[in-house]
Design a protein around this nucleic acid. Structure first.
Lengths: 187, 187
DNA sequence: TTAATATACGGAGGCTGCCTCCGATTGGCT
DNA sequence: AGCCAATCGGAGGCAGCCTCCGTATATTAA
């Protein structure tokens, strides 16, 4: 298909240094980390950063695509789990952990699912598709309310993940997710 | 107690113009709206804005305090409602609407509840106290799980409100809140 | 090895926003 | 009218975003 010329040696080197530093910076300061800072730490001019990654999203997307694809793969794997609802819950919890790695990432992914023009849309959408099979299976097994959609579940997950990030201690997301599955009402 | 000298006429005028424009700007652009822009539109120097409101939070707090106090009052009012769980749910939904007015406000209030040094802490905390009576009543009536805390409920509400703001259409928060109360599992 | 050229680099510069500081202005009081 | 404390305004310093273009260099051909 698309012919890909190999990158010039220095270009590739810089590209990789930038990704390393971006990973560090986003993990430390959240998705709003300073791009100039990333370039500085990578020992590269700001212009070079922008040539390789025209937008902040492009940089994030490069860092995240592999991770998201792994989540989709994991969904397929969990389809063989004997417990449909538990499998779904496990998948959601793991996805929540993944979007918790960078402060502010939840907002990005939640928005990406509703914005086809987003650079992250493709991999987010692929993940969504994979997850929806887990949802359907849990419904067919009679273990999950039929009137809940995959999108609503993902949004609830993102909400729990968001909330977990605004709680002092760790493990908040897990607890909230469990509450959501159980329901608050005494039955 | 503290003697309060009346403000000079020009000072008061500017103070009020600033609040008006801040309300407009936050409603339109979210809590990150440009302060310089607010000062400009108010026909006032940036220095004047900072003298009246030393921080963004101070400005927000002035705008929000009345609103939050009204929420606390509403909680006391709902204590006389014949349906304890419904009353709680109503209160939470209304609170969710209130924190949905400015984009980014949910984050602020959620964080304020965990940060005593925040300028918003006082009124947030008062609201929390008022709400906790609704929670206790619903528990005593046997309509709400006993192992859920007020803080968890507020966090879930904030999460739902956050999620509602990341959904295209309106009414998302209400639907999510209902889901959380009902639970996802088939019982 | 050298020369030619496409490719990639770097950072200056223009812009916006944050916040502080202090000389200029003015409201209120006598 | 005249004084002075209260208040104003915006210049100035800093940081971050992003673009543009003169300079440098990796690669290829001779």
């Amino acid at each position: 298909m698309t012919e890909v010329k190999p990158m010039r040696a220095d270009a590739r080197r810089n590209y990789e240094r930038l990704l390393e530093e971006a990973q560090r910076a986003f993990a430390e300061h959240g998705v709003e980390a300073s791009l100039e800072d990333i370039a500085r730490r990578a020992g590269v001019g700001i212009g070079t950063l922008y040539r390789h990654f025209p937008t902040r999203d492009a940089l994030l997307e490069t860092l995240l695509r592999a991770r998201f694809d792994a989540r989709a793969e994991r969904a397929r794997e969990l389809l063989t789990d004997p417990e449909p609802l538990t499998a779904l819950q496990t998948w959601l919890a793991e996805l929540g952990d993944a979007t918790g790695t960078f402060r502010g990432l939840v907002e990005l992914t939640a928005d990406a699912l509703n914005d086809e023009s987003s650079r992250l849309y493709a991999s987010c959408h692929a993940m969504r598709e994979a997850g929806s099979h887990l949802v359907e299976r849990a419904k067919r097994a009679g273990e999950l309310r039929r009137d809940v959609t995959t999108d609503e579940l993902l949004l609830l997950l993102h909400a729990a993940s968001w909330a977990g990030g605004h709680l002092p201690g760790p493990g908040g997301m897990q607890r909230l997710l469990a509450l959501v599955f159980e329901g608050l009402r005494v039955s």
